[in-house]
Amino acid sequence: MELFEAKNVDKVFAATQALTDVSISVKEQSIFGLLGPNGAGKTTLIRIINQITAPDRGEVFLNGQKLTRADISKIGYLPEERGLYKKMKIGEQAIYLAQLKGLSKQEATRNLKQWFEKFEIMAWWNKKVEELSKGMQQKVQFITTVVHKPKLLIFDEPFSGFDPINTNLIKQEILQLRNDGATVIFSTHNMGSVEELCDDIALINKSVKIEDGPTDKIREKYKSNIYEIKYRGDYNNVNHSLGQQYKIIGHSEMEKENHLTIQYLNGNSNNDLLQALMPVSEILSFEEVIPSMNDVFIKAVEESNKK
């Protein structure tokens, strides 16, 4: 069941084409990665979802219904460029922002206090924003994004400004929110976190969607016959035995075993490789390398730029 759908969305700013016929669909209770190089159009799409701008063409749906102004309270948005009122007290400010999302004052206060206690930041309640460090402010911003229990959460670079410990905390919170029923759209350049968190992704480059689907399937799709072999034996013999059939991408010699990364060149099978290696070494393990999201990203974008 799709919680969110965008269909054939076009958006033009003056002379810049920001989105060209982009469609995405986000399954309920999943984490969806919205990826792409800088200036690809991700933020524009996110702003369309938040009804900050309207698409020139195309439609967006929430829960199968066309998105309306009334849906605002069902969405929580943490923008990439974010801030808080510097002179306002944290608690007061968080209540105000929650009220703007449709919570009553009592509800807002209650929910916020729960979150503040969970993050162990109750002591900040009466402080002004300018007294907090950037990381502290990010925590407050995260809370104000999720406090009204939105069905759809949109995080744009949520980890920027966090140290590894807090990054992990936020990651756990995002997963928890998903498990509790929220659907998450997540935009980042941190591909490691995409691998960890995202069920599905869409990759946008130069206003066009160039790839989308489940994260593991896409990674699978970008496999390029690269294998990693752990063995015991002499590297020179192995190298000689492999001959011109394989491209050696890397090798390293450890105390007890050697690692070798190679690419098949001429439609070799796994058995061919094993046959070539067995006479000269003891094979400890052998597996195909699934490309990292980082590799997928670079490869997909470069290919699309060539077209």
Binding site: I52, Y77, L78, E81, G83, L100, T145
Partner: peptide, 17 residues
């Protein structure tokens, strides 16, 4: 200007027109 400079504006206008 304050809202724009402190960058809270995007959060605000995702809540209100």
């Amino acid at each position: 200007m304050e809202e724009k400079k402190s960058r809270i504006i995007e959060v605000i206008i995702s809540s209100v027109k």
